[in-house]
Write a protein that binds this DNA or RNA. Structure first.
Lengths: 144, 144
DNA sequence: CTAGCTGCAAAAGATTTGCATGTCC
DNA sequence: GGACATGCAAATCTTTTGCAGCTAG
């Protein structure tokens, strides 16, 4: 698990150099935090989680940084039904479960879909870069 | 095509009665407009399109109405990467293509997925109500 | 050194809310 | 008649921007 994190961080640093992005403490911490967790935090949430480690970190830097990362494909802005945007470290081949009550987003894997070919009409539309299944429902905790 | 619209409107009126929602001109027009188009408009866009027909319609009524409809499952708030929320009449079994450049959302069908069973781990999570594939890429117009 | 980042504060944009009035059932 | 909806205006929440100082490369 720690290996995966280290690997993600190395890939991140490489990607930054390749894109000409500077490696600042803020960027490193924001990425590291996002790579560490799996709960798809919002900019606001990330900021709160990092403010202890980087006391001067401003919320707008978090927004700007996440925007920059997303532009360079390092993180994904996750689709949600809420008004606040959520983020995750870009990883191909994973899908989302969203509880329409508590709004929690959980990842799941579904190789069947990853391997499936999209219908012909879709290829006529343009160039597909990734596909993601979003399943909506109510999670166990909210059901009881 | 017109038949489909009429059928949707009838279903809508029934659903309203069933949920104890009042049938006001605003609600009817908002739903009708949304059922007529396929471009997943935002509340703002819907308001602009309806202001001719309902000159006193206020933007906040559009927001409130869409929120109410969404609560009752009559429309879906569509996942997007943008800050503005988009809406569509609730229809099962359809999927989305999103162009990461022009942000246009296009529907497509993929029966293969509609028929597929979700992996076991997902069923442990809770009760799934619907699943939707979102494919990201760049559309033809933006590619050229 | 200097282009690119950051923090601050203020602006802009999206959505929600309180309240008085109007209207569907 | 009464509960529910609407319109207006103001508030709130989220995200973006301008600018001056700071810093990684």
């Amino acid at each position: 698990m720690a290996d995966k994190l280290r690997q993600q961080l190395t890939a991140f640093e490489d990607a930054c150099r390749k894109s000409g992005l500077r490696l600042t403490p803020q960027r490193l911490e924001i990425f590291r935090e996002l790579a560490k967790v799996s709960d798809h935090p919002s900019a606001e949430t990330l900021h709160q989680r990092l403010i202890n480690r980087l006391p001067t970190l401003s919320l707008d830097t978090v927004y700007r940084t996440l925007g920059t990362f997303a532009e360079h494909g390092l993180v994904n802005k996750v689709d949600t039904i809420e008004s606040q945007a959520r983020f995750e470290v870009a990883q191909l081949l994973h899908h989302h479960l969203i509880c329409r009550k508590c709004k929690k987003i959980i990842d799941f894997h579904w190789q069947f879909i990853d391997d499936a070919l999209l219908p012909e009409e879709v290829h006529a539309w343009g160039r597909i870069e990734r596909k993601n299944v979003v399943a909506y429902g109510i999670c166990q905790q909210c059901l009881t």
